[in-house]
Design a protein around this nucleic acid. Structure first.
Lengths: 220, 220
DNA sequence: GATAGTTTCATACAACTGTTTGAATTGCAA
DNA sequence: TTGCAATTCAAACAGTTGTATGAAACTATC
C-alpha cells in the first residue's frame, strides 16, 4: 500500500552513515537529513531508533546465516549426512568473511556496516547476537558428526576459535594491515578464509588420526 | 600535596560502575554519587569524562603489557636471546587471559572492567589500543627469532590468530559457556591459556619441521 | 592569625538527544 | 467530488548529558 520510498530511503541513509561514522556519533537528525525526509519519519516507520538499527542488522545477518546453512546443508547432503570438518568450517566462516572483507574501494555499504556492527557493540545489535546460539548449535552438531571421536568440549572450543579468528580478523583488519606493513593481504578474502579454516581444522584434529592436509590456497 | 582521596574515590567508583553496567549507561552523575563526591570533581581532577576513562584503561593495560614483556624478556634471556614459540605465545596471551577470566565470584573489579573495555569499544579506549602496535611488534620480533624459517606473513597471521582466540574468548565467554552448556570451563584459566597457546603454536609451525608437542595442562 | 593556594560545592549552562503531537498534505476508493 | 486513511511535516517536548562558574571551605605556610 505505502509507497515505501521514505522507508527505504531511511534504511539506505542510515546504513551508509553508520558504516562511515559508526553508531556512536550518528543521530536521527543526521539520518533524516541524508535521506531527505522529515525527522518524525523514523519513528513513524520504525517505531524507534533502536528498531531501525535492529532491522538493518537483522536483514544483513539473516542473509549471512542463510548462506552459512545453505553451504552446510549442501555439504552434508553430498556426504550422505556427514561432511568433512574443513567444509563445515568453511561454511561457518566463509560467508561472514566474504561479507565483510575484500578490496576497500569496492566494499559494499552492507559490508562496511557489518564491520561497524562487529566493532561497536550497541544494545539492539547485542540483543540480536545473543539469539544466535541456536544457529551455532547446528554447526556444533555437524562438527560432532564429522569428528565423532572428539569430545564435546573440544568441539565447542574449536567452534569458538574458528569464530574468534574470523571475527577478530574483521574487527582488527586495519591494525593487522598496519602491523604487518601491508604484508598480510586482507583483500584476498579466499586466502583469509583458508587460513582460518586451516588453523581451526588443526585445532580440532590435533592429536587424533590423520586427516588430509587442509588445502591452502595460494595468495593472490 | 593533595589528599588524593577524592581522586581515587572517583577512580574506584567509575571502575566499579563501568565494570557492572558498561560505558553506555553510566553517567558522570552516577559516578560521583557512587563516589560520594561533587559533580565538578571529575572535571577538576581529570579534565573530562573521556580522560577519566582513558586513565582507568591505561593504568590496567600498561600493567598487562608490562607483565607480558616481563615474561617475554625472561624467556628470551633464559634461552640466550631465543625463546620457544610456545613460551612467547604464553607471554602474549597469558597475562590478558589471567587478568580477565577466572571464577566470576572472585573476579576483581579490574578484571570485569577490562572485559567491558574489550566488549564495548568507546572512543578514548580505541585511541589507546591503536597505540599498541609498537608493543606487538616486539612480540613479532621474538616470534621471528623463534621461527627463522617462517615468512613474515605467517608470523603476523599467527600473532593475529593468537590474539583473536584470547580476546574473543574473553569477549564471548558468557556465550561460550551457554553454548557449551557449561562444558567449557572458563574459570580454569590455565586450561584456556594452554588451549590458545597450543592452537596458535600449531598455526605457526604446521607444515614445517617438528617441534615438540605443546604441553596441554589437564583441566582442573 | 592572616595569607595564598588548593579543593569542594551548589548551581547554572548550553547543547543535544529521541520522541511526540496535531495539523497539513497526499493518495486512493467510492 | 467526497470521504477516509495513510503519510508527511514543522514544531515543540522532556529529559539527559558533559562542562563551566564563582563563591565557599579547607589546608598549610609564614
Amino acid at each position: 500500500m505505502a509507497s515505501d520510498h521514505t522507508r527505504s530511503a531511511i534504511l539506505a541513509a542510515a546504513e551508509r552513515l553508520y558504516a562511515d561514522r559508526g553508531f556512536g556519533d550518528v543521530t536521527l537528525r543526521d539520518i533524516v537529513a541524508e535521506a531527505g525526509v522529515n525527522l518524525a519519519a523514523v519513528n513513524y516507520h520504525f517505531g524507534s531508533k533502536d528498531e531501525l538499527i535492529a532491522e538493518l542488522f537483522v536483514t544483513r545477518s539473516i542473509a549471512t546465516n542463510r548462506e552459512r546453512l545453505r553451504e552446510l546443508k549442501a555439504a552434508e547432503e553430498q556426504g550422505g549426512g556427514r561432511a568433512p570438518i574443513e567444509v563445515i568450517l568453511h561454511a561457518l566462516v566463509g560467508p561472514t568473511l566474504r561479507g565483510c572483507l575484500g578490496p576497500e574501494n569496492q566494499r559494499s555499504t552492507a559490508a562496511r556496516f557489518m564491520i561497524r556492527a562487529s566493532i561497536e557493540s550497541v544494545p539492539p545489535i547485542r540483543r540480536i547476537k545473543n539469539r544466535e546460539i541456536d544457529h551455532l548449535r547446528k554447526f556444533a552438531g555437524a562438527m560432532r558428526r564429522a569428528l565423532p571421536d572428539r569430545s564435546d568440549v573440544d568441539i565447542y572450543w574449536g567452534l569458538n576459535f574458528a569464530l574468534a579468528m574470523a571475527h577478530h580478523t574483521i574487527r582488527e583488519s586495519e591494525r593487522l594491515t598496519k602491523l604487518s606493513e601491508g604484508k598480510c593481504d586482507l583483500d584476498d578474502v579466499e586466502d583469509v578464509v583458508s587460513r582460518v579454516v586451516s588453523v581451526a581444522t588443526m585445532a580440532l584434529t590435533a592429536g587424533k588420526a590423520e586427516t588430509k592436509a587442509p588445502a591452502r590456497v595460494a595468495a593472490r
